[in-house]
Design a binder for these strands. Structure first.
Lengths: 201, 201
DNA sequence: CAGAGTTACGCGAAACCAAAGCGAAAGTCA
DNA sequence: TGACTTTCGCTTTGGTTTCGCGTAACTCTG
């Protein structure tokens, strides 16, 4: 069910409030934030949001409103940007309009996410194989051991495990027949880290 | 049903508006954007779009139009029936109410589908590892080489590759440290074949 | 091909209803 | 008791619906 502008504003505020503080705002706090003079107004808004299924609340209990969408998180449709292997087809952002639907939770965090088709066997020992689709959270930094999509020298896009030691970075394939790459950190750009994997037989 | 040029424009505008702001435009806002002097015009367009199935709206409710495709976003939610390895936790049909959402196309065939959590390393060489979730199409027969969920002697549920030779069936793990099982076909029940795989990091 | 019928697209004004707001009072929980 | 939520009646503002009327484009048919 669709929301009005005000309802959306208030809903967003409540979500942020809950996310930030871990508890719900009181009607007065909401009223204060929107500079409303009467809590009755807020109360009505919340009733609307409840009846539209966006919020849940217990009757006459302080700070009992909560966003209902947490579990329901109507799931993500993310773009498939290209193929990753040893070529460099990542630059083309939003090239085709291909996209894929992934389970929520996999791309759940507000951080941007995208997907890439995997070509080649370079991560075979991590159980990632040719034809798989990896779901990638768009980030610019990674922690040791994470599987990342990296650009080396601004051109080659690869899927590797990431290890940083001092000012140097090792990009390690999970395939004993292939060699790790070790370069100064300045030559490596992280595009994201792998969050999920989808395979179709 | 096909749209006219104007209808398309208005439909696109509404979609973008909803995507951007999280709520629907009012008739006046739409009129303003297209420099129309009367909301009646917009109203008529919207009626057409509704009757052609592109929009939904509540009667006489502010900002209640919404693109049908967004809300309907069809994709499959299938039950996670249990864990598969060497135990036998498959019998319990619909045990918990756990479920997972998978990309359409993976469970697309209206043939029943379900999901299982994988425990153990018995399919490691097929790039299926501990903790993965496999999406299984419920079937009672399999072709050679397919990865199946099978019950041996009515009790043990396992994930193996399936090969039939005459009246005997070989169930082959993709792990060189484990032994194939070879038994008469009558002792094996196929529960389904693996269609997809989902992994969360 | 011309004219008839049909549909899409447009205007403006008036009627009507729901959302959004106020303030105060009453009720409820811990 | 004090920090909350509910409820009531009332106003204003913003949105929707419907009316009648008009033009332009497309399609059907003799």
């Amino acid at each position: 069910m669709a929301l009005t502008r005000r309802q959306r504003e208030i809903y967003d505020y409540i979500c942020r409030f809950v996310a930030d503080s871990g508890y719900s705002p009181s009607l007065e706090e909401i009223a204060a934030h929107f500079e409303l003079a009467s809590v009755a107004t807020v109360h009505k808004h919340i009733q609307h949001l409840v009846s539209k299924g966006y919020l849940r609340k217990a009757w006459n209990r302080s700070r009992s409103v909560e966003p209902v969408s947490v579990g329901t998180a109507d799931f993500a449709e993310i773009p498939v940007l290209g193929t990753v292997a040893a070529g460099s087809p990542i630059e083309a952002i939003e090239q085709g309009d291909e996209s894929i639907q992934v389970p929520p939770g996999m791309a759940g965090w507000r951080g941007e996410a995208f997907a890439l088709r995997v070509r080649g066997e370079s991560m075979i020992e991590d159980q990632i194989c040719d034809g798989d689709i990896v779901v990638v959270e768009s980030r610019e930094e990674a922690r040791n051991g994470e599987t990342v999509v990296a650009l080396v020298d601004g051109s080659e896009a690869t899927l590797k495990r990431f290890y940083r030691r001092g000012s140097r970075v090792r990009l390690v394939p999970a395939n004993r027949h292939m060699e790790p790459i070790e370069v100064p950190a300045s030559q490596v750009m992280i595009r994201g880290v792998v969050r999920g994997l989808i395979r179709n037989y």
